Amino acid sequence: MKASVRPLSLKISEIFLSLQGESSRVGLPSVFVRLTGCPLRCVWCDTAYAFSGGQTMSLPDILAEVARHGVAHVCVTGGEPLAQPACLPLLSKLSDAGYAVSLETSGALDISGVDVRVSRIVDLKAPGSGEFDRNRWQNLALLTSNDELKLVLKDRADYEWARQLIVDCQLAALCPVLLSPVEGELAATTLADWILVDRLPVRFQLQLHKVLWGKMRGR
């Protein structure tokens, strides 16, 4: 008698409907699937509650919950979603189901196994994050025009690092590049002015969900 095969499962922090607050998809109604766990500890992390806890859900249950919300866009985030191996089949199953899928990842883990239909939003860690040494630079060579790079900046030193990286590595030729200020550390207008002075080929962004709802969970 064959043993039954248990469906793959993941530890889920939360699944909720909101407007996409970042990336080129900003403003789009999206279902967010936030996975539990992260090997990084960025000093400005705003989702530390996802480091632990959550509930174990099977892939079929996750897909059913996503479908219940009835929108076309899905964002898989964390924590660091790629820290759970079953994240890869989840991304593929969501793509198979016809969703436009994006993945928010720190860039500290290998992105090569991510389904090619998924837009990988890679958050390169600036020196001020405290996790600069965790950047997996090999990921840059894997980026396509379907992906995006996000750089969150704390101060002028972070900006200078980002500007040099954008020029030296010709990042804008790889994929769209997004620059964001750390809330409470770098004024949004200051970063916007720096970008304009230097004519950087990037997109400035704020976290729309925080503008609308502050730090409310599930938004």
Rank of each mutant, 00 (worst) to 15 (best):
S102L: 13
E80H: 13
R117F: 09
Q55P: 06
L165S: 11
G130P: 04
R136D: 09
P81H: 10
V116M: 15
H69P: 08
P127S: 06
G53C: 09
F51D: 10
L124H: 08
D147G: 07
D61N: 02
T144E: 08
A50R: 14
T47F: 07
D115E: 14
C75I: 02
H73T: 02
D110R: 14
T77L: 13
V114G: 03
Y159P: 00
I62H: 08
D115H: 10
V74E: 13
R163W: 01
G53P: 15
A83I: 09
T47Y: 13
L109Q: 10
D115S: 15
Q138S: 14
G79S: 02
V66Q: 06
I166M: 05
V114N: 01
P85T: 10
E160V: 01
G78F: 03
D115F: 15
R163Y: 01
T47M: 15
S119G: 09
L88D: 00
L109E: 00
D61K: 00
K125R: 02
Y99S: 13
S129E: 06
V118R: 04
V114C: 09
A108M: 02
R136K: 06
R68E: 00
S92T: 15
A162E: 08
G70P: 01
G70S: 04
D96E: 14
D115P: 15
N139D: 01
V66W: 01
A157C: 04
W161A: 04
D147V: 04
V118Y: 10
L91Y: 07
L165W: 08
V76Q: 07
I121H: 12
V116I: 15
V101T: 04
H69Y: 13
L165V: 00
P85K: 00
G53N: 09
A141K: 07
T77I: 10
V167L: 08
I111Q: 10
L153K: 06
E148W: 05
A157L: 04
D61Q: 09
R134D: 01
L151H: 05
V76A: 11
Y49Q: 06
